[in-house]
Design a protein around this nucleic acid. Structure first.
Length: 507
RNA sequence: GGCCCGUUCGUCUAGGGGUUAGGACGUUAGAUUUUCAUUCUAGAAACAGGGGUUCGAUUCCCCUACGGGCUACCA
């Protein structure tokens, strides 16, 4: 009987939630659901200097928006709390001290300034076997002096003592066997002078205490894996160590390198899941959500960044992803982010969504432009008419607003009809208005029939008046079938718009 | 610099000892839509290089090149 699967997403609350972070969270979620396990949110706020107000709530909101809400976490509770590392501070010291007692770690009294000095003096300086003896630590200072320093409360850190010459390796779920030479790894700080653990200690202690079975993180963590491996061993928990998976990085669309918030600003696309306002500077960074992405599309595109199911299928619901996700099919190489493809995913999702499910989003987009759409009797019909041509939810403003308000005179594309305008056309439209008054029915097919009959009657080519009608009703050369538009607009509104246009063209 | 990871069309990727190397985004050209978008059809577009192993390598192995990550009392 194997243990219950438990995975964690462990972000640091230092700002907006990056696309890559959401993907890591997503893979955690998929794996947990697939294996009927638990998905835990752990807030890694051990660096007090980088703490940003509101970031934690923001992260939780992002996960909720994506539909990948954690089962346990600071917001949800659970039997393994607290879930903020800052609230677990008291817990870590004993493990660090245990390591010191065992001889696997030591006290170091060097100040940050002294170390900076060393780094300047010695090229490729590492706090490790090569330089330990010339530094101020409990490995080389006389026992008495160490005790005195400790008694005086001298600020110090606890560092791991890396073995001089060992090969340490593990089997990564995506990369297979990975080995490291301990001689190349420095003596990482485990406990900082302020009593807080570093990531290295905290991740091991908490993964152990929270009974994490599988640990997914970005590839940038691979080089510090040997430290974590050793810690699991030294703490005596080797058999409980989770299986590691180092996920491929998400790279810049141009050139290479990790995708960063800056790239989004520079290239004009979002990197954060939702809008993020920096509480200090007040700077707003746009998110996928506010730009008009459906959470389903966002999750879908993220899942395909580094994973596929081996077929040509590209559109997946969250449920399908849960069912089909597999660690074996995660690619090893980093993936450049392509915003064009991201938009394609959203377009597909909008097209495949029902008008009913899109309704709240469309109402909200229109409301941002002071258009109240919620009471429109034909709202779902309007959505069905235009959704195929909306790539982003925000496009519903451009493609649907004319159903709710007359196009502004200044916005109407007069240049496409005015040059070829003549009295015959004026006559035609006047006659058309009259004709509309004679019949009670008002459906696309009958309007079209009447319109066409009139062109014959008047001896005017249909193409000559179709485009003008469209521009009168819509304001430009776009939109669905013009008689469908007229039907939704209603007879009265259609006539008003034609009359209005006629008046302007007649000036 | 050192260590680690990686390398199939511009991008995301499938494939895997013998294939016309497949799909998608983007792109090009046509068709349709009496508008625009969609849609449809067609096209251009890739196995980093060199050595092995093999009857045969894009596929397996090695080297090189290139790219990336890490190298903090940050995560």
């Amino acid at each position: 009987m194997s243990k219950k699967v438990r995975v964690r997403f462990a972000p640091s609350p230092t700002g907006g939630l990056h696309l890559g972070g959401v993907r890591t969270a997503l893979f955690n979620y998929l794996f947990a659901r697939q294996n009927e396990g638990d998905f835990i949110l752990r807030v890694e706020d051990t660096d007090q200097t980088r703490f940003v107000e509101g970031a934690e709530e923001y992260i939780i909101d992002c996960l909720n928006w994506c539909g990948i809400t954690p089962d346990e976490g600071p917001h949800a509770g659970g039997g393994f709390g607290p879930y903020r590392q800052s609230e677990r501070k008291a817990l870590y010291r004993q493990y660090a001290e245990q390591l010191v007692k065992q001889g696997n770690a030591y006290y170091a009294f060097d100040t940050p300034e002294e170390l900076e000095q060393k780094r300047a003096e010695i090229t490729n300086f590492q706090y490790g076997h090569a330089h330990r003896s010339s530094l101020r630590n409990s490995l080389f200072l006389p026992v008495k002096e160490v005790q005195e320093l400790l008694d005086k409360g001298t600020p110090h850190v606890i560092r791991i003592k890396m073995p001089v010459d060992e090969t340490i390796g593990f089997t990564d779920m995506v990369r297979g066997r990975v080995n490291f030479e301990t001689s190349q790894v420095d003596d990482k700080v485990l406990l900082k002078a302020d009593g807080m653990p570093t990531y290295h200690l905290a991740v091991v202690v908490d993964d152990y205490l929270m009974q994490i079975t599988h640990a997914f993180r970005g590839e940038e963590w691979l080089p510090s894996a040997p430290v974590h491996l050793l810690l699991w061993e030294y703490l005596g928990w080797k058999n409980e160590m989770p299986q590691w998976a180092h996920l491929p990085l998400i790279l810049k669309p141009d050139g290479h390198g990790k995708l960063s918030k800056r790239d989004g600003d520079r290239l004009g696309f979002p990197v954060y899941a939702m809008n993020w306002t920096d509480p200090k500077s007040g700077d707003l960074t746009k998110g996928f959500r506010e730009l008009g992405f459906l959470p389903e599309a966002f999750v879908n595109l993220l899942a395909l960044l580094g994973w596929n199911n081996g077929t040509d299928q590209e559109i997946f619901t969250l449920d399908e992803l849960v069912e089909q996700f597999s660690m074996e099919r995660i690619s090893k190489a980093g993936a450049q982010f392509d915003f064009e493809k991201a938009k394609w995913f959203n377009h597909e999702w909008i097209r495949q969504s029902t008008a009913i499910s899109l309704t709240p989003n469309v109402i909200s987009v229109l409301r941002q432009h002071d258009i109240s759409a919620e009471n429109h009797p034909q709202l779902t019909k309007i959505i069905d008419l235009v959704k195929d041509r909306c790539t982003l939810l925000t496009d519903f403003y451009e493609h649907a607003s004319y159903f709710f308000q007359k196009p502004a005179e200044s916005k109407i594309d007069w240049t496409s009809i005015q040059p070829k305008w003549n009295d015959a056309k004026t006559d035609f439209f006047i006659a058309f208005i009259q004709k509309t008054q004679e019949t009670a029915s008002w459906e696309a097919a009958s309007i079209e029939a009447a319109f066409k009959a009139l062109t014959q009657e008047k001896g005017i080519k249909i193409g000559e008046v179709m485009l003008p009608l469209r521009v009168m009703l819509v304001g430009g050369k776009f939109g669905p079938a013009v008689f469908d538009i007229a039907e939704v607009l209603g007879k009265e509104e259609t006539v008003e718009r034609i009359e209005l246009a006629l008046a302007i063209l007649g000036r």
